[in-house]
Design a protein around this nucleic acid. Sequence first.
DNA 1: CTGAAAGCGCTTACAG
DNA 2: CTGAAAGCGCTTACAG
Lengths: 336, 336
Amino acid sequence: MNIGEIARRSGVSRSTVSYALSGKRPVAAATRRRILEVVDELDYRPSAAARALREGRTRTLGLVIPPAGARLTSMQLDFVASVVEAAARVDLDVLLSPSGGDHDRSFDRLVTGQRVDGVVLMEIRLADPRVTRLEQAGMPFVTVGRVGEPDRMWWVDVDYATLIARCVHHLADLGHRHIAFINRSARLVAAGYGPARRAYQGFTEAAVQRGVIASEFCCADDASAGETCVAQILAAHPEATAIATINEAALPGVQRALERAGHEIPDTFSVTGVVASRWAEESRPQLTAADVPAAEMGATAVQLIMERIAEPGAAPKRRLFAPPISLRGSTGPVVR
Amino acid sequence: MNIGEIARRSGVSRSTVSYALSGKRPVAAATRRRILEVVDELDYRPSAAARALREGRTRTLGLVIPPAGARLTSMQLDFVASVVEAAARVDLDVLLSPSGGDHDRSFDRLVTGQRVDGVVLMEIRLADPRVTRLEQAGMPFVTVGRVGEPDRMWWVDVDYATLIARCVHHLADLGHRHIAFINRSARLVAAGYGPARRAYQGFTEAAVQRGVIASEFCCADDASAGETCVAQILAAHPEATAIATINEAALPGVQRALERAGHEIPDTFSVTGVVASRWAEESRPQLTAADVPAAEMGATAVQLIMERIAEPGAAPKRRLFAPPISLRGSTGPVVR
DNA sequence: CTGAAAGCGCTTACAG
DNA sequence: CTGAAAGCGCTTACAG
């Protein structure tokens, strides 16, 4: 089934069918009606490949996700879902590329195979080679997170420094004087991973400001690392009464370890941080936390990439998200 | 950058470049080397659109996921990740289509726009109109879950009947005599949703077999519905000592409500069911459950769709997954 | 071992 | 208001 067949059955030329469908040229009402009838009857839609070849654009977005090896966090999953949803709303398809390392064939295809009109790149690393490749190939892209020279780039990001500072203020308001901060992994911190570094900075600054005794702990991105980390915290800082974290994946372990140590959240120990709202709400007790607005971020990323595609030379745009803390059940006044 | 430019710079014809790249015709070693050098230098890759148009296939798979309105469960997310990963391993791209209802433009594009070579369809409903459309369009597809006439179709599925029966046997072995079963929503059950129906059947048969007193409760797919449901169970069946469920999304609420009612899992109440292993492991306490092998199912779905694409007339294939129960910490002997 | 040419299915200037 | 034709970038029979 192709446009020639529709033309034949409608008794018009292929160009008229094309124009009737696109509306880019007036077509006599009767002709148009006849064509649309045939199109409906045969459930015809133009070949995406032929159209892409001719128009030089694919009406498709690439979404580069971390490879499955590292399981996606709830936050990341919500982001993926919202990108796909936002793209669908404007009739764009989304091609997924799981890629982390430097050599990845699916990423290669995305960049140089003209498969997509633009790319949304998740979980970028400091000095990410993929960013360089995208730039060299002249492919429009938007990153999730800042990297390299943020002023030159298009990105959306979470303002971890501000959010974690809000957590510190909230805890200080409740009377907590000794707060532990659970960061992402030591490897990531050592690599200068932006969110980890900025969160640490926001945490210490707020702690100094409030005269709170603060300590940082690095922790791998999984529940059992969270358990170990809490054990360390309780041993090294028995006077600590609260934990703030940006490490979503460690949280189940954090809660488990606190419970095992005989703590009741929030009666004898408070826990807060920056997490996806779905996580916060499914937790027991529900977490008081700065809810990362993953859905809004995904929609914004799509919005930005569309603007960049439409106007490649435009000045870079970006959006920094700093949602308020949602009060739920995991923080309370310090016990004396 | 196109094949003509590569040909010009290598001093050969475009066909020779094409053959050097595909290996479908012998090319003199020296010529080949020169071509590949130019290709590498310019980071050239054939246009996906041109190639798709010419070859009549896209090297792309469609993955139809439930729309974002209904949040994906961990199980579904693991499945998506594994499909993308398995496809990447065989150099196939994956196009995501969030679609539930009958009219969905991204689904339409997938089916009739020749955007993909085959489709993996998640969360099908009984008598799903999308299945009909796929069949009419002659698009190869594999469903997750059985529907309609399962003997005629290609699918992968979880053997809920067997798995939930295993849960009943496990609980009976521990001495439980009164077990409640938390099913999916009443709406789904009424619609004859396969997993819900088959799980119920497996549950009751096993209960009869073991002489256990069993009751079924329908529950919407979210935590707060889980809380309400447990309250109902405790009120209606104060003698119940265990819950088995296939409703992953309700679990956080189930645990919360049991806790609030003064129960300690597994000391005074046992909980088990069919869930994604990531869920089971992140739970507090970790859940004894039949772990749905989402990753393996995703890889199998990709395997099947590839076979169906390669041999459209082949006899349908399918795989039913019935993993063993993983013993963790949420079930124990009944207290007398 | 290599090249010239046709054709996949569209869209859009060009022409009337 | 409509049509004939070019051309997007490939791959592959056909020819030598």
